[in-house]
Nucleic acid binder design. Structure first.
Lengths: 228, 228
DNA sequence: GAAATAGTGTCTGTAAGACACTATCGG
DNA sequence: CCGATAGTGTCTTACAGACACTATTTC
């Protein structure tokens, strides 16, 4: 039986193509009649794609030589959507040998997060769109599974700490923070419980929010201890 | 500037070698003067290894064509240690382009778990050893980081559920279960709290443990609801 | 009975969930 | 004053941690 050995020349083995696919998530702000919601960036698939209908997909690319996965993720976001990613995080390797009919392609799924404002300022509208989740769109390959993994990961991150991915700016009210967390969680969070859970990791600033109805809210920033 | 496109021929891109490395974890039973401890399987590195001293390492192999990562993990355990793995689980992809001086090699780290008895019955003693953790051994590549990731993952799995990786047989006492959980956690767990945490997911069997000192303990099995 | 281990009663502190109340703004 | 939003007091429930007690076996 044939078994490989560490010392054997690497060139003797057929090698897979390695791709990255990224769920670039954001929180779509509330409008007058909808709450804030989680969203994901999709890019237009090139029409010359073989074996699959043109349409929308997560941004992805093949890993280049001498490149790390995180660099490939940032490059694919830059090239496909004009967006600069921040901290791509690995989710899972999809490895079904038959998952891509163009050949043997492993895909390393990633999560990255960007604020809606940054995303809208950077992205190329002709090539990309942001869809609210959950979406009824049909996506190719394992892209729906990637979005589910990304959502789950993000929810866990946001469960016990204030805006760990920094979707908000330096100062914000607890109501702002709660709206973001509710969008990520996909459900309403009780205001008193939420406040008590987060307050320990926030630092109150010597200012209050202006230009809103009702009692002005205290502004907060991330406390030094938890700002990382 | 050169940018790849999905439809471009895959063969045009240089491809990395893809390896798997596995932390095959077990719980080393208690002896008369030591508590049960977490252990990991190491295999002897082939002497012809280039660029690194021969010694001990996690079992690993290169991914073969048409193979899934989990299959490669099982094959590497079989070939390198004579052991049949069960449910390899991905931990992380190590992707530093310079991490392996033999060339461009990505490594997908995995975790698998096997009971000590099964492991000792199967493994080839000349090629492999089981070391208790934490270990002071120097290991090549990212293998120490893999072991840390594996330990952390296993600890989370064992925090709130009875023996999810089935290191114990069908029936066991709560003391047996606690010994395993203490080995995984790396610290003592209080017996009353532990019992109350686990009891809901256990089913008491119509038998008691025999051949031990003191009051015989109730035997339990996994309750149907939580057996998965 | 003594030693050893199994199993339980119960107190305390913490924290989530829930509800209702008070506080402070614009108009 | 009213409407609106911010922020808090407090009750209930659950549960982890801790301690001490009872229970049942072997020797």
């Amino acid at each position: 039986m044939f078994t490989d050995v560490d010392g054997r020349a690497l060139a003797d083995f057929p090698r897979p193509s390695v791709a990255v696919d990224t769920a670039l998530m954001t929180v779509i702000p509330a409008t007058h009649d909808t709450l804030a919601r989680l969203g994901v960036l999709l890019v237009r698939r090139p029409p010359q794609s073989v074996g699959a209908a043109a349409g929308w997909a997560l941004p992805g690319t093949f890993l280049h030589e001498g490149e790390t996965l995180a660099e490939a993720v940032r490059r694919s976001l830059e090239v496909k959507a004009g967006v600069t990613g921040r901290e791509p995080q690995q989710l899972h390797v999809f490895d079904d040998p038959a998952r891509d009919d163009r050949g043997w392609v492993l895909s390393v799924a990633h999560l990255d997060v960007l604020s809606f404002v940054d995303l809208e300022l950077l992205r190329k509208p002709a090539n990309s769109r942001i869809v609210a989740l959950p979406s009824r769109l049909r996506l190719p390959y394992d892209h729906l599974a990637i979005i589910d993994l990304a959502t789950e990961r993000l929810r866990r991150e946001y469960r016990a700490h204030p805006d760990p991915r920094r979707l908000l700016h330096e100062s914000f009210t607890i109501a702002d923070l709660r709206a973001v967390h509710e969008a990520v969680a996909g459900r309403e969070l009780q205001k008193d419980t939420f406040r008590r859970l987060m307050i320990d990791e926030l630092e109150s600033l010597p200012a209050a929010a202006e230009g809103r109805r009702g009692r002005p809210a205290q502004l907060f920033g991330r406390s030094a201890r938890h700002a990382e």
